[in-house]
Nucleic acid binder design. Structure first.
Lengths: 75, 75
DNA sequence: ATGGTCTACGGACTATAGTCCTCGACCGAG
DNA sequence: CTCGGTCGAGGACTATAGTCCGTAGACCAT
């Protein structure tokens, strides 16, 4: 599976655990609502800064999210 | 300090520890030499995929590089 | 049936990641 | 001095990240 698809899956998982809507996450991280949707569906490749912006609102370290991607990549 | 500047510093540090030139790293990670230079000087913001491509050639986990950025960010 | 919430998805756009080509400066070795 | 290896920098470009508009469908309650 590609990096961006795995990333999207993990992002969605964390967001849902936090009980946030895509729109709410977008608002808090100052990103666009439709862009969160694109990310979760693996249609976009976030920059490092975007990852930091997202994780800051999800109460998780950027490196932790990346680590989740790594782990799920080789499955 | 900004995320991209810290990232560049850490990238350079690791690359030099591995005794690779920018050109050699660029070749191995299938990126452009001038782009590695831009990254190290904090002039560009790498995508997640680019981080994976770089770290794969630096014998370090992507999450580890990101963790280094995190740690140095609040100094 | 209707209104609210959530999400997928599209098109058109702007900003910027990443490429390619080039030149100039530096440095240590021959 | 010159030459090879290395890097900074800039200009012009192409690809794609990220925005901003919208529509439509699913689900849930009233």
């Amino acid at each position: 599976m590609s990096i961006e698809v795995i990333f999207g899956q993990q992002l969605r998982k964390i967001r849902e655990e936090r009980k946030l809507s895509q729109e709410e996450l977008a608002f808090r991280s100052k990103l666009d609502r439709t862009y969160i949707s694109l990310l979760e569906r693996g249609k976009r490749r976030p920059t490092l800064n975007t990852i930091f912006a997202l994780t800051a609102q999800l109460d998780i370290a950027p490196s932790e999210l990346v680590r989740m991607v790594e782990k799920n990549l080789d499955i």
